[in-house]
Write a protein that binds this DNA or RNA. Structure first.
Lengths: 355, 355
DNA sequence: TTGTAGGCGTTATCAA
DNA sequence: TTGATAACGCCTACAA
């Protein structure tokens, strides 16, 4: 007991050394001990003042807060997390290629609003994922939003660590894991319906990267609806979601068919825009006169007058809000089971489809 | 002394309770103590195995690493940061409005490469900054990259906390603070030179938000060069960096002048694109036949065939690399003085300017 | 090279 | 309501 006491004393004295130095130039950061000493109360009293719902008298609180102000004290969230086992940080994984800026900014500001901080992980190659996951554990994130593809094995790691994860626009049909999606299939069906109703007969479908599940869902959604409607004149090509790959794919489509199809169904807006530009400026085709083009996502540029693309608008705000609240609910209560939420996209009729 | 010893013993026993439970479903996370016990060595031995340059025998390392693998142990970076006073996290502040996705992804992957993690703070209103700054202290970030405007007072807070900060595309002329910029003035001068050489006589300048320093530098850069060249037929309008505001500003310009100017100098590419579309699709003007348009930034969409905008390409990769290395150098050695680096933009001649 | 023991700044527990 | 003390998981002298 005597040993302990003398330790405390040493600590106190050590602190006292820094007294008198200007707080603003002090090398050491302010701690709750400094505040306690300055206010003449115990360290635990200071701690309690920063926890809402704690029993502190008004007198005590005022006294402590005065010292806090004077010393410019900020509680150390890292040290707090060590003992509460809550870092108040979530990981957000985005894949660098199809980087929707809106999504990230929506997620970020919604988390920030709720006092949760975002550790950003952007990956270039899918292979980086496993390294990222290790980092997530090391930094003790409370949860993860993943806008990237994980393997079932990787997903099960989250389970075993009891770290909730919500996928953004990635669905895993047979795995019990939470996700927020835009209904890709339904969206494509709407687009196909519109095109077929307005008399288009021959189609080309331009997909995204072959390993993209979202792209697969979109292209398959379109194809199955076309087949239902008895249309079989369909050519498929793959791009990589970029502008340039859209135009290149269109060239390949024409080469393959020997002629220009009535309509082009692209797995995202950017490739659709690439196709429109390719058609207009290299192939000297009129859009929508000679060929109709539709996309998917509803990104900003799709509504620019130059394109006025017919597309499916993803409800980014609703989806981000859903992802954030789903995740935080599961951080609070780990026993809430996984849930998959699917939002309908909104058909935005532009002027890239002939009537 | 006896007290201390019994404490340690209690700890050990407490740990032992969880033994036998499956590690993968254990509620508690693995700690270095678990590894130590499993490997039959001391906890500090485990710790040393994760520090490179520490003196550990190969035998010891192998033995420890075997246990590490078997238990799936990951060191707790949070706890480590508490004692090393290095969180290995940096804050990145971006303002939500002019969100360059490329910049963020460049910064993020470069930091990640070097084992540094990014805490993302996106702000909608400049007023959010002060709250953000508090959070930065609480989370013990080692440094900050700011792509947002801070007041001199706020900047001095970083100084007093000894947290290095590097500004991205914000320069503070009279304050000793590090920054990485694209030379806005030089870029505008290049654009003006090009326009004047090709015979443009009357100009309109469309700026960004009034409180944007970057916008101010760009518009002033253009105006001063125009004046040097003896040109005074200049109209100014302000937008807010968005597509829509570009078109609206063009309308106002024409209203103000009563006629269409020869050339339009826009403070960023997106507004320039807005102007091109407004001119072509609403005003029935030919670009560049009836009016020339130039922008600034060199964003992806500016090079799309529909626009093929003449602009100044910011060297995003070099700038991001510079920001990252400047920041990390100053995290390593706090005595490196502030440094301002200015990169030249590259004039990219498109087809939005008549010869 | 290895182990012991103290401390990083906080919250949690419990007695006063 | 307040204060003393023990964690949280790790790093690091220092001693062996």
């Amino acid at each position: 007991m005597a040993v302990k006491a003398s330790n405390k004393n040493n600590k106190q004295e050590a602190k006292t050394e820094t007294e008198g130095r200007n707080q603003m130039t002090s090398r050491r950061q302010m701690t709750s001990y400094d505040v306690a000493r300055h206010a003449g109360v115990s360290q635990s009293a200071v701690s309690r003042c920063f926890k809402d719902g704690a029993s502190v008298s008004k007198k005590m609180r005022d006294r402590v807060m005065k010292s806090v102000k004077e010393l410019g004290y900020q509680p150390n969230a890292i040290a707090r997390g060590l003992i509460t086992r809550r870092s108040n940080m979530v990981g957000v994984i985005v894949s660098n290629l199809n980087f929707y800026p809106e999504v990230l900014s929506e997620l970020s500001s919604r988390f920030t609003e709720r006092g949760v901080h975002v550790l950003l992980f952007s990956i270039d190659h899918e292979s980086d994922v496993s390294r990222i996951i290790d980092q997530l554990w090391q930094y003790q994130v409370d949860g993860v939003v993943a806008a990237a593809h994980l393997t079932p094995d990787q997903i099960s790691l989250f389970d075993s660590r009891h770290v909730p994860v919500v996928f953004y626009n990635r669905a895993y049909q047979d795995i019990p894991v939470s996700s927020v999606c835009c209904d890709q299939v339904e969206g494509e069906r709407q687009l196909v319906n519109l095109l077929v109703e307005s008399g288009h007969k021959s189609f080309a479908i331009i997909g995204g990267p072959k390993d993209s599940v979202v792209s697969m869902q979109r292209t398959q959604g379109a194809i199955s609806r076309l087949n239902e409607l008895g249309i079989t004149d369909i050519v498929e090509e793959a791009g990589d979601y970029t502008y340039a790959s859209g135009g290149a794919a269109l060239q390949k489509v024409i080469q393959k068919r020997g002629s220009v199809p009535d309509a082009l169904i692209c797995a995202n807006d950017i490739m659709a825009i690439g196709c429109m530009d390719e058609a207009r400026y290299r192939l000297d085709l009129d859009v929508p006169g000679d060929i109709s083009v539709v996309g998917f996502d509803g990104v900003r540029s799709s509504s620019w007058a130059s394109f006025d693309l017919t597309t499916i608008q993803q409800p980014v705000e609703s989806m981000a809000e859903a992802a954030v609240s789903m995740l935080l609910e599961r951080v609070e209560n780990e026993f809430i089971p996984p849930e998959k939420r699917s939002f309908s996209g909104v058909l935005r009729k532009g002027n890239s489809v002939r009537d």
